[in-house]
């Protein structure tokens, strides 16, 4: 089989994690590229985790959370949004391709959207090839 990117997805317990589940239940077609970490809120995603994931050798990081105004914890996803803007600037300055990092708001009902995002992100990263930050010994 040709090279498949590895994408790490942080999914919010209250929305996108259920969304991802729904995508599976509804048998939406998507490539097997995503490893999901469930978090209680996208606002808990520490940028250091994202950096660590890249250093460990993932080819892309997807952060997903509740739509604006629908956060289970009132406004934590606005913190996510601000941190993401910094991460975006960081990745750009660092010289990593911007397509390797993505933030999406996905509701529990949006299995279709989850599958679509994964498909699209996979295509884009596949075009880029493996991450230049991947350790020489490969991904653990």
């Amino acid at each position: 089989m040709s090279w498949q990117p590895k994408i790490l997805a942080f999914c919010c317990n209250w929305c996108s994690y259920a969304g991802a589940d729904l995508a599976g239940v509804e048998r939406r077609q998507m490539p097997p590229t995503v490893r999901i970490i469930r978090v209680m809120c996208s606002g808990t995603v520490d940028p250091a985790w994202v950096l660590e994931a890249f250093l460990e050798g993932v080819d892309g990081v997807l952060i997903t959370g509740c739509h604006p105004g629908e956060c289970h914890y009132l406004n934590a996803n606005y913190h996510t949004a601000r941190r993401y803007r910094l991460l975006e600037a960081f990745v750009k300055e660092f010289g990593l391709e911007p397509a390797r990092l993505r933030l999406e708001w996905i509701a529990a009902t949006e299995g279709v959207k989850f599958a679509e995002v994964v498909r699209d992100m996979t295509d884009k990263i596949r075009a880029l090839g493996p991450s230049p930050l991947r350790p020489e010994e490969g991904v653990r």
Binding site: L55, F90, L133, P135
Partner: peptide, 16 residues
């Protein structure tokens, strides 16, 4: 085994 240590990465991000 990292290409850049996480120490340096976190500092780069925190100081941004």
């Amino acid at each position: 085994h990292y290409r850049i240590s996480l120490y340096n990465m976190i500092r780069l991000f925190h100081l941004m």
